[in-house]
């Protein structure tokens, strides 16, 4: 009742099956092993750290309207919010400023730790690194933050970057200093 639409010679059909299957498998292997990326000639400077110091209370006087809108037992003359200090990060390599960023503490109340995580691809070789992480005395709106100022952190030194390697500059807040990791090349025994 029906006519199949296939080559009538069996060996030809099997040859076609094998050929097509081989072609599909070749495509599968090729996409599964697609060349991607080359070993970079540059090195990478990675900055990382976490800061929780500098918790302060930012207070302001309540307005008469605010006081009037509250029940008597909830009326406070001052409204205070705890927050962390903002910081300014400056990174200069060989005298060139690579970053000058203000780091605000995350969270609605700006009370979450600040995480620093930055990478700079640089030419392999020796460089002069100047790194400053200073507390900022003002909040996001430019209002001065009162309270004890937390410490700032600074690192000035020569670094050597190797091709395809990462030099990690890690802030150890407890010890109050930067640590440097990965100065040795991958070939160093």
């Amino acid at each position: 009742m029906m006519t199949p639409s296939q080559p009538k010679v069996p060996w030809l059909r099997w040859a076609a099956r094998l050929t097509l299957t081989a072609a599909l498998l070749t495509g599968l292997v090729w996409v599964s092993h697609t060349p991607f990326g080359t070993r970079p000639a540059q090195g990478v400077l990675r900055l990382a750290g976490r800061m929780v110091a500098g918790k302060v209370s930012v207070c302001r006087d309540s307005t008469p309207q605010e006081l009037a809108s509250l029940p008597p037992h909830q009326r406070k003359k001052k409204v205070c919010k705890s927050r962390l200090f903002s910081y300014t990060l400056r990174v200069a390599v060989d005298g060139t400023l690579l970053a000058d960023d203000r780091l605000d503490p995350p969270g609605l109340s700006h009370d979450r730790p600040i995480y620093v995580q930055k990478e700079f691809a640089l030419a392999a070789g020796e460089h002069r690194l100047a790194l400053e992480l200073e507390p900022d005395g003002e909040d996001e709106t430019g209002v001065a933050i009162s309270g004890p100022r937390p410490p700032g952190y600074r690192l000035y030194r020569k670094i050597t970057l190797h091709p395809g390697r990462v030099m990690l500059v890690w802030l150890d807040e407890k010890q109050g200093e930067f640590h440097v990791m990965g100065e040795e090349s991958a070939d160093t025994p």
Binding site: F36, G37, R39, P40, G164, V166
Partner: peptide
């Protein structure tokens, strides 16, 4: 502490 360069990806 190395830049990942696997050479090939799936």
């Amino acid at each position: 502490l190395g830049v990942p360069s696997p050479g090939e990806v799936d």
